[in-house]
Amino acid sequence: MLEIIPVIAAAFIAFSIGSNDTSNAFGISIGCGALTFKRATIILGFFVFLGIILSGQRVMKTVGEDLVSLNVQIISIALVSSSIAIVLSNWKKLPVSSHQAIVASLVGSAFAFGESINIHTLINIIVSWFVSPFGALILSTIVYVLLEKVLLKKPLFRVERYLKVLLLTSGIVIAYNTGANELATALGPIVYYKLLSSLNAAFFGSLLLFFGALALSNRVIETVGKGITKLDAFSGFAAQFGAGLNVLLFTHLGMPVSTTYCIIGGIVGVGLLKGVKTIRFEFIKKIMASWVLTPLTAFLICYLATLFLV
């Protein structure tokens, strides 16, 4: 009976990722009228499924097998508390990373249980969290400079068409990463504890993510970029594509990193190219605070919850 709890919690997380992260993938395309919401959701669902099937194994293994020794209580407490945190943060539109919440919850709960924690894997993950936004910053800056040199000299109507194709491409990369990294992080513990088969988890996870996108993501289709710097479609593409390539790289390394934080890194990179004054540092401070507080809070809550409940 207890086995059903983490599955339900993971289902909530998948649904939440769908409702929140469609904006990561297609927020700019929808916002600038290049894609309709319905089309974006269908493309998202398809590429999320493709992402988790083709490239989700490494991240699932890191979170589900390498990080901590799991038992059903650890998975239940970690995923339930993560799902509550993710749903609440989505509701309040806070940029909380689901990776950070899940990883820190698993570590917190395992620590309270006295189960073994693979410090080497944990350090690798934390280093990835530090490095990934900077990687996205550098890649986005390169993408923007290349675009400026190659594309902006072309005739306007042609550039507009290219831009739509480019935004769609970067959206697809992010959607693929959402499956290969974000959803894989949520489903890793369930698959490696053998509560669901890898294929079933991928299928139902993608389906729930799709429904989450369909049901709620219209509410949060606002690019996170609006808050940081005034973003035109080109800058949006550069930030998104740079972040997408970066997350793809980390996915290949099996590291669960946040697409949202990478996009933020990309936006800052493009903003810096346009001048430091274009960046709203107040917003950056809030995001950085959330970046530090999310894993700490998740760790503490799960640690205390485990001590209290078990």
Binding site: G31, C32, G33, E160, L163, D232, A233
Partner: peptide, 8 residues
Amino acid sequence: EGAFIPGL
């Protein structure tokens, strides 16, 4: 009806 991106 949505021809072209809003910026144009």
